[in-house]
């Protein structure tokens, strides 16, 4: 539930708002729905990671990886797949941390 809500709402937010809007979504949804810290972190990490994985993979495929190859070389990771993993992890960490924060802040009143 938590996972799905974050997934859907963050997707909508990211289409229209700057990237960090995902943190607000995670925070708010976890504040509202999360029941455990671990669950909050994992749901945030997984949902954001998945939205980033899906979109990055989509663009990578439709552009034949032309740019992802170059950027991978520029950042000296040399493979667009490593770049993809880095992307997912960075998105996931921000999602996980902000969800966890939402949960922990809510708990102050519990």
């Amino acid at each position: 539930m938590l996972f799905l809500l974050i997934l859907l709402l963050s997707l909508v937010a990211q289409f229209f708002l700057p990237w960090w809007s995902l943190a607000l979504v995670c925070f708010a949804v976890a504040f509202w729905k999360a029941r455990y810290g671990g669950q909050a972190f994992l749901a945030g990490f997984g949902a954001i990671g998945l939205t980033w994985l899906g979109a990055a993979l989509f663009w990578h495929v439709v552009t034949d990886g032309l740019l992802s190859h170059r950027v991978a070389a520029m950042l000296t990771v040399n493979s667009p797949w490593i770049l993809l993993v880095v992307t997912v992890v960075i998105g996931g960490v921000v999602g996980g941390l902000s969800s966890l924060s939402g949960y922990l802040v809510r708990r102050l009143w519990a």
Partner: peptide, 30 residues
């Protein structure tokens, strides 16, 4: 973390907006 990812360090890009596939480089093609 968000602040750190939202700024550049010399030649290192701001990884948050740069890697986000909704506004960053992934989406530059097509």
């Amino acid at each position: 973390v968000i602040y750190g990812l939202n700024r550049t360090y010399g030649v290192v890009p701001a990884l948050g907006p740069f890697l986000s596939p909704y506004e960053g480089f992934w989406r530059s093609g097509a």
